[in-house]
Amino acid sequence: MSGYEAAKRLTQWFRQWRAPLARFLIEQGVVPAGEVSDVAQEVFLRLLRYDRAELIEYPQAYLFKMAANVANEWALRARRRHPHEAEWLDGLLAAEHPEADIAVAQAQAEIERALCLLTPRQRAILKMQFSEGLGREEIAVRLGLTPRIVKRELMKSYERLRTTLDPDLLRVISYGRE
């Protein structure tokens, strides 16, 4: 694969996946964790209304763009309903306050706690992926595993973290960073 092709693919990759995901992660910071199911309900309805052939082209991009838009609209509606509370704005401004630093520290501690509940092998895989940015093949080589097992372990890790991490704490850490 030429450098040009690689760069092109990487650009594609960012457009289809990373950029919409990042926007969703930023937007969802204004939605209380309990309301994510409402956001999901609306995204679900929009997905049903959309042309399937189009969705199939860039499923991740559509999913996260819709989710980011819905989260954003949700926040605007909430603000219109309670114009004086302006909670989301407090949240924005709080990003620089000491309490927010504490909340971020709590979120970091929460992630660490949840990671400790995984098996050492699962932790090793996640650490290589997120801390060192290794691909799955590289991780497999390093750990002497098959790529299939690495994939399996990642799936199990995500599933476990999904049930053990406190989503309300995660909002803090996900918001406002690009």
């Binding site: 995901l21 969703f24 992660l25 969802q28 994510v36 199911s37 956001v39 999901a40 309900q41 995204v43 679900f44 309805l45 997905l47 999913l63 996260f64 989710a67 979120a107 970091q108 992630i111 660490e112 990671l115 050492p120 092998r121 932790r123 090793a124 996640l126 650490k127 997120f130 801390s131 995500y158 973290l161 999904r162 991490l165 989503p167 995660l170 850490i173 996900s174 960073r177």
Partner: peptide, 29 residues
């Protein structure tokens, strides 16, 4: 819609892992 919700929650987990800064403290064997 439950599927949509769960994938969004997994996305949040992923986002948290990407922003986690304590990897150096995470013990692996």
């Amino acid at each position: 819609s439950l599927h949509v919700e769960e994938i969004l929650r997994v996305a949040q987990v992923h986002g948290a892992l990407e922003r986690f800064q304590g990897w150096q403290r995470v013990a692996t064997e």
